[in-house]
Simulated assay, not measured.
Amino acid sequence: MFTLIFQTTSQLLFFTCRFGRMANITLSSEARDIAVHPKDLRKQKKIPSIMYGHGIENISLTLDHEAFRKVFKDAGSNTIIDLEVPGGKKHKVLVQDIQKDPVYDTFQHVDFLAVQMTEKLITEIPFEFTGESNAVKNFGGILVTNMDEVEVRCLPGDLVHSIIIDLSKLENIGDSIHLEDITIPKGLEVQSDMASMIVTVQAATEEKEEEAPAEVAMPEASAQKAPEAAAE
């Protein structure tokens, strides 16, 4: 955990962010019987899966749906998982891709990327926003989030689960936090522009009702008397 002091023209703002590396997460798998249709596996609350990576052969696997759901809730796609494959060997993997049922929100398929701990990779680390901005709560400001994650390059062992930013430190309208305002965890090489804004508070804009144009009184037409025809 760290505290960063950021100077503005009117005040000092204290931005508190923290980050942490997850403890080891383990997931077991079974060998997948290719003869069994994926629909039948899903009826058994199993998920068809595959693991691939540099220097290894693809391995078709089956996962327990509930076990994977719990692991993915904690690990997401940017935390190393110790995936145990048939035979007892464990591989360091990341969740590379998932497919979900749009109606039932169940996992349909999972791809794992086996990583080499000595080879750098590029991934995204999410920001986790906590607290409540005083500018929003008391001054009616609008919180505008410009970034919800940052792309980094790092060794797998240097990955962090998230970077947490305390929104309660945004005191006034116009306050903002940029990438250059936060401390990046050791080992992470940010791939984005450090001047990029993460979050800011803007003033609420009131929509004014358009006033209907005032009716202009038209002058009454003066009655004109037709000239009488001259008598012959």
Rank of each mutant, 00 (worst) to 15 (best):
S49E: 04
S49M: 04
I50W: 10
I50K: 13
M51Y: 07
Y52V: 13
G53D: 10
G53F: 03
H54P: 00
G55K: 10
G55L: 10
N58M: 13
I59P: 10
I59Q: 15
I59D: 09
I59R: 15
L61D: 12
T62V: 15
L63T: 07
E66P: 01
A67V: 04
R69G: 00
R69D: 10
R69W: 06
V71K: 00
F72W: 03
K73W: 02
D74W: 03
D74K: 15
G76Q: 06
S77D: 14
N78W: 01
T79Q: 02
T79F: 02
V85N: 09
P86D: 07
K90A: 08
K90E: 13
H91R: 15
K92T: 04
V93A: 00
V93T: 03
V95A: 02
V95Y: 01
Q96H: 14
I98Q: 11
I98C: 09
Q99T: 05
K100T: 14
D101Y: 12
P102G: 10
Y104K: 15
D105F: 10
T106A: 10
H109Q: 04
H109W: 06
F112Q: 05
L113R: 05
V115G: 03
V115N: 01
V115P: 02
Q116Y: 00
M117E: 06
T118D: 06
K120A: 11
K120R: 15
I122M: 13
P126Y: 09
P126H: 12
F127C: 06
T130P: 00
G131H: 08
E132L: 11
N134M: 15
N134C: 12
N134T: 13
A135Q: 04
V136C: 08
V136E: 12
N138Y: 14
V144S: 11
V144M: 11
T145S: 11
M147I: 12
E149S: 14
V150N: 04
E151T: 15
E151N: 08
E151H: 09
V152I: 14
C154E: 02
L155V: 09
L155D: 07
L155E: 09
P156W: 04
P156Q: 03
G157M: 05
D158M: 07
S162V: 03
S162K: 15
S162F: 07
I163R: 09
I163T: 07
I164Y: 00
